[in-house]
Design a binder for these strands. Structure first.
Lengths: 272, 272
DNA sequence: GTTGACTCTCCGGCAGGGGGAGGGTCGATA
DNA sequence: TATCGACCCTCCCCCTGCCGGAGAGTCAAC
């Protein structure tokens, strides 16, 4: 026989506040086992306690309500667990990222930076193989590694050598709005055969203000900031994606602190 | 000479969206260096880029806007750094908690539990020394350890022995709303002298449904849930704080997995 | 029948912005 | 100098996941 209790009692038993329970009812996350049609009173059954527990646990780990709902709706325990584990994995990844950001910020607080040099460069049009995509910022790093790896693999498989440093182009919307067009490319002298998402591309010419960034690109915003300040102060900024050239990257060394990246900001140059 | 740019250019240079910049202006976090009184256009100066960078960094680490504001308002770099480091420390603590919760949940997914026995117990009124307080849930663990340590120290200093297991009483509001009354106590035969926040207390008698919880109390909600289900199904719940008795706790062993805690739910018993 | 403790719905608000409507402006070109 | 497209402005509503309170209806014990 199932016991039936009021919302207040269920609140005390489940450790969810009355407000929260009503909210969960409203959004369909946890429906009372019975609602009196006369007065609207909600009544909960004792076997809803474990459900409430699960909800509390998952919400405590920031799982969005909609996702909790789909977990509960999944009939198969296997599916359920996979959804939960997926969320836990995302959490772990988040933790790692935050931890890294914290460490970097601590580092930056310890030792302030010296100003860096800015170079002007005229980049000619360049034939290359490339991968393009509309990318969410959070996926950028994974996409970037995958795409660069693929390009190198294609090149290697055809016995070709890069004709210049690997590079990338990034629409500023990626950084402002978290999503935008991105391109990575490797210059090639001779036409490579293209496979899958790899395509041939003539990287357009550009006038760039260039600053060298050392270390992981997770810290790239600092260099971007410095470069942006320089450009605002001394140059005329023009339309066009930001450009990066990976002089030393993850293909050359495992230690991100050793990476060297040129960051290029499109500018207008009237004279030399 | 400072350059002056429109909000769009500043957005591209700072990687903050136009919407966000307007929002930061509105809340006073980042004021444009100049606002045209005629048309309301915002203009930013190049030396605001580093400020924008700092804001972006700190916001990226979930520092509330108000706190970022006070960081920027702090004139002394020392003070600034202390504020930031404090936030980073909080973040680290958060990370540790989340990590632990993730690990526990993974564990729970691996091996499901067997149902546990529930015992009925009549607890008589008991003289004790106690510490009470209105506690936020997040501070509960620290408060609990501190208070228990203090009680034991007082007892030890007076050469007295506990006359029963250490216990605690917790208003259910703590769990429902994150804040409420809490009490920890140690029964004593002979009157102890009381010092500071320690007081003498007669722990009121109670009828309890009791379940044994093994392991860290971070997982206590599971046992609470099971016990709550039992109470809803088989007992008549009455008013009164939840009660815990720490049979094996942090004073006895360093390994939280070894802890044993009795969890008591106040019930009504008409007969034996 | 009267309390007092519950319960209901509805409204408003929090952070930290995003989306979009509707309308004014800027500047480079023709 | 007119025009056009790219900017910019304000205002309002929306999002998530609840919390707080007002005003009114209900339940159960005495």
């Amino acid at each position: 026989m199932r016991a039936r209790v009021t919302i207040g009692d269920f609140s005390r038993a489940s450790h969810l506040s009355v407000k929260t329970l009503r909210h969960y009812h409203e959004v369909g996350l946890l429906e009372p086992s019975e609602v009196d049609p006369g007065n609207g009173y909600r009544y909960y059954a004792d076997d809803q306690i474990p459900v409430a527990q699960v909800i509390r646990r998952l919400r405590g780990l920031q799982m969005p309500v909609a996702e909790v709902k789909s977990v509960l709706a999944a009939p198969d325990p296997e599916v359920r667990n996979r959804l939960i584990v997926a969320h836990l994995d995302r959490l772990e990844a988040d933790l790692a990222r935050t931890r890294a950001a914290v460490a970097e910020l601590r580092e930056l607080l310890e030792r302030p930076q010296a100003p860096r040099a800015v170079e002007h460069r005229t980049v000619p049009a360049t034939a290359a193989i490339a991968i393009q995509g509309m990318i969410d910022r959070e996926d950028l790093l994974a996409w970037w590694q995958g795409a660069l790896g693929e390009l190198h693999a294609i090149l290697g498989a055809q016995g070709l050598q890069p004709a210049g440093p690997t590079g990338g182009m990034y629409a500023s919307e990626i950084f402002q709005h978290g999503r935008g067009d991105a391109t990575v490319f490797i210059p090639t002298d001779r036409a490579a055969r293209v496979v899958g998402r790899v395509e041939r591309l003539v990287v357009p010419p550009a006038e760039l203000a260039i600053m060298l960034h050392r270390g992981s690109l997770a810290n790239g915003d600092l260099t971007y900031g410095e470069l942006g300040t320089h450009v605002m102060r001394h140059e005329i900024s023009v339309e066009g994606p930001l450009r990066e050239y990976y002089l030393v990257g993850f293909l050359e060394t495992d230690d991100p602190d050793q990476w060297e990246t040129e960051i290029g900001w499109p500018i207008f140059r009237s004279d030399s």
